[in-house]
Every structure is written in structure tokens, then in C-alpha cells.
């Protein structure tokens, strides 16, 4: 008797059915072909609500293979609720090996951070994006923002940066600082801190962005120019920790978390949990190098 194996598994490999995966992959190809362009896609239903990381999950599940080693972080941490649950889900749906080690992973999904350790050409980095439209803060109508992107009409964005500088003495955009990709589209780099923005520029790795609720995919391919918007006399700068060091490792050249104690005092600690673990264990590290981080005295 010929055995029917089709219904032995309750789900297709990586949960999403093959034709939907194909659709997402086609849209990813388009996104890679037009760096920074927001490509609409089907955004299929997931067992979690849209807005909770579905965009990142769609991308991950559409491109993951059986040999991939998967890592997922949430705000730099491997251990937060969002990361743990999505890791379990991807593991259950694919059987892929998972890891905390940044250098070992081949596919990394993230919420709001890029790892401190430099990424390589062998890795793919997937962002969960809550708001893909960088112009939303200055223009509420979608048809208008589409037109503005189409015609590269970004004056309003620039005026909002001017206004921020005039009112507050600095451009107060902590996360999601707008960047210009390949000299053309202005893109919202997910809400990663300014610290991570220079690591998008001329990178080795393919960066993919998925916004499930807004149904948009976009990409920064390897070796693409990524410039944060800056005036000739008001330059982009990364977060300044005022010489603070990580209280567990004494390390300065990483993005630091501010942790308040019950007595009101505060301490700083390296945000990237895997990086922190490696520093504490004295393991070899290979952090990102860029002009902004180099300026910090070690």
C-alpha cells in the first residue's frame, strides 16, 4: 500500500504554505532590487497578532531552510518574552537549531537592535518593524506619502528635523532616525537606536525589514550606502553615555542600558545579552567598527 504522508504533519515546514512563501520571497526580491522602497505584500495570518512581530516572522519563515541556525533578540536580549516565544515557535515549525551565539547564527531576527558583534556576508538579518513609513510623522495620508516617495519630495521631513533642532537644540529622534538609502529613498530603520545606524552603511550582511501590520517589506542589501539625514552644520551623532561604563564588565564601546535600583541610583550595563555573556566569560569578540564608535575612548 502506498502510504500518504501528506497529512502526517499538521503544518507545512515553517508554518506558511509554499505559495505564500513564494509570494513573500518575490516581494523580498523586489525590495532588494529597490533598496529602501517599501514593497506591499500579502501579510498572511499568523498565530500571533499583527504588530507583535509578524512582519519579521513572515520574512524569517519565508527564507529559513532546514540547515539554518536561528537566533532571535528583542531589544538586544535573547531572553525576553517576545524573543523566547518566537524562538520556540520557529523551532517547533522548522526543527531548526537555535542559538544565542551571534557569530554562530545564520539567520537572526531582531526587534529594535542590531547585534554588537559584526555580522558577516553569510548571515541574514531580519527586522520586525512597527512603523515602516518614515514620513508618517509629517504626513498622515498614505496616498500623499507614496507620492512624496515617488517624487523624492522630502522637504517636510527636513523641516521637522530643523524644527526639532530649533526647539530643543538637537535632533531628538532616539530611535528610528530617518536614513537615505542609496541616495534615493528615505527609510525608517525600524526603531533601532542611533547607535546602530552606522552599522547599516556599506554592510556585509543582507538586512531585511518586515512590517506585518502595515503589510510592507523593504531591504538594505549588502554594500549599500546608508546616510542618516543631517544638515551641513548639524550633524548626526550616536547616543552619548557621558563616559559611563558597563558596571559588570567595564566595557564602554557598546550600547548601554540604564538600570535603576530601588534606592534611585542608576547603573549601566551592556544591552546586547550575548555580547555581555561573552565579555563576562572572556571569550573572543568581534564587534562592529565604525567612525562613530571609534571616537569613544576605551
Amino acid at each position: 500500500m502506498i502510504e500518504n504522508t501528506k497529512f502526517q504533519h499538521r503544518y507545512n515546514f515553517a508554518f506558511i504554505d509554499e505559495s505564500t512563501k513564494k509570494e513573500i520571497r518575490r516581494k523580498l526580491l523586489k525590495a532588494v532590487a529597490i533598496p529602501g522602497y517599501q514593497c506591499p505584500y500579502s501579510s498572511p495570518e499568523m498565530p500571533i497578532a499583527r504588530g507583535w512581530g509578524t512582519g519579521g516572522l513572515h520574512v524569517t519563515l519565508a527564507i529559513i531552510g532546514r540547515e539554518d541556525i536561528f537566533k532571535i533578540i528583542d531589544q538586544g536580549s535573547d531572553a525576553s518574552v517576545n524573543a523566547c516565544n518566537l524562538r520556540d515557535f520557529v523551532q517547533a515549525m522548522t526543527g531548526c537549531r537555535t542559538t544565542f551565539d551571534t557569530t554562530e547564527a545564520t539567520l537572526i531576527q531582531t526587534r529594535h537592535r542590531i547585534t554588537e558583534e559584526a555580522l558577516t556576508a553569510e548571515q541574514v538579518f531580519v527586522f520586525q518593524v512597527p512603523q515602516p513609513e518614515p514620513l508618517r510623522s509629517v504626513e498622515r495620508y498614505e496616498y500623499r506619502t507614496r507620492q512624496m516617495h515617488g517624487e523624492a519630495d522630502y522637504a517636510k521631513m527636513w523641516v521637522s528635523l530643523y524644527e526639532s533642532f530649533v526647539r530643543h537644540g538637537d535632533i531628538l529622534l532616539g530611535a528610528g532616525y530617518p536614513v537615505r538609502i542609496n541616495g534615493r529613498y528615505i527609510m525608517a530603520p525600524s526603531p533601532i537606536p542611533r547607535w546602530d545606524i552606522p552599522n547599516l552603511h556599506q554592510a556585509e550582511t543582507l538586512y531585511l525589514f518586515g512590517a506585518g501590520r502595515e503589510k510592507r517589506l523593504y531591504a538594505v542589501p549588502p554594500h549599500t550606502t546608508v546616510e542618516p539625514l543631517e544638515f551641513e552644520d548639524v550633524r548626526f551623532h550616536i547616543e552619548d553615555f557621558n563616559g559611563q561604563v558597563c558596571n559588570q564588565t567595564g566595557y564602554r564601546k557598546a550600547f548601554l542600558d540604564e538600570i535603576y535600583s530601588d534606592d534611585g541610583s542608576k547603573q549601566f550595563v551592556v544591552n546586547d545579552s550575548n555580547f555581555l555573556d561573552k565579555l563576562r566569560a572572556g571569550e573572543p569578540i568581534a564587534p562592529f567598527v565604525n567612525a562613530y564608535i571609534q571616537q569613544i575612548e576605551s
Binding site: A155, K156, W158, V159, S160, Y162, E163, V166, R167
Partner: peptide, 12 residues
């Protein structure tokens, strides 16, 4: 926007 910002829009 401030009045300066409005003028800035045209200059930008």
C-alpha cells in the same frame, strides 16, 4: 511649524 520652519521649507 515655526515661522522660521515655514520659510525653511521653501529654502530646503
Amino acid at each position: 511649524f515655526s515661522s522660521g520652519g515655514n520659510i525653511a521649507e521653501k529654502l530646503i
